[in-house]
Amino acid sequence: MLKYTARRLVYSVIILFFVMFLIYVLMSCMPSGYVETKARELASRPGATKSYAEWLDDLNAQYGMDKGIVGGYFIWLGNALRGNWGDSWAWTIPVTQEFHNTVWYSFALGLAAFILEILIAIPLGITAAKKQYGFTDYFTTVVAMICISLPTFFLATLLKYVFAIKLGWFELAGMQSRNYMNLSDFGKILDVAKHFVLPLITLVVISIGGLMRYTRTNMLEVLNADYIRTARAKGVPERKVINHHAFRNTLIPLVTMLGGSLPGLFSGALITETLFSIRGIGYASYTSMTQADIPFIMFYLSFLSVLTLLGNLISDLLYAVVDPRVRLN
């Protein structure tokens, strides 16, 4: 187990190295004028202390652009490993600080959505599987399919239209009301929570379909297994068959998958956060992307890659932990 984990870790690091390299190449292949534009902008800012040429040299040196792609990559990687990710161009604070400012909002939103998703999707998926080809099954399948097929932006716009514009229950976007500063501490929490409702619904609806289908499929497979037939044959009550024999076995793939998606809670919801102006990491990175904030983008993309690899690793390890039949080597 330990050996396997260590090997996977080394393997992940190697993949990460190449992924980051690809990202770096992509960023350096950005059309010319990317850094130049930035240098011009910095030089023309009020109170700028450096000229355009100085800024250009400075920026090129800062991001190792003057050392060629490979050389530049190693310089950047060296800095990044020492925790020096540079200053964000769009936010004008160190990248890590901006990350720290935003990631917890994303995490809160992601976690709430994750819990709700589990609470809704798994029972529905199991119910659908219990009554395969029944009305509930069809209904669940169609609803799951609609949820999977809904474009995030359309759902978000629709929710805004109905709940913010027509009904006026929530605000269109943002995280705080206008009177936020006058509220008590508890009131502030409630206020932010209220602003999180619509993004939360969006996230839950978007992700619920996949989990529902996954649960249903796995439950169906378990229900068709021999040991379920045996349990039924020896007269175990149906409720017990479902809840004890079937559901526990369905948990194996579920826990593996959900465990694997845990790191994803930190990655932020790019579209949802942007549309609702939630100052999470998704919104921050979207702004950075549209403003060509290379340091922050590099950081965010690397961060996402790490999360993906971590998710895969956790998922594989959990598989062995949950299912005693699986031996890792």
Binding site: I15, L16, V19, L22, I23, L26, M27, M30, P31, Y34, L270, I271, S285, Y286, M289, T290, Q291, A292, I297, Y300, L301, L304, S305, T308, L309
Partner: peptide, 16 residues
């Protein structure tokens, strides 16, 4: 598999 799909497309769009 590891490359973030949507962010890269957004960056590409912004660059274009």
């Amino acid at each position: 598999y590891c490359l973030p799909y949507l962010p890269i497309m957004i960056i590409l769009g912004a660059a274009m």
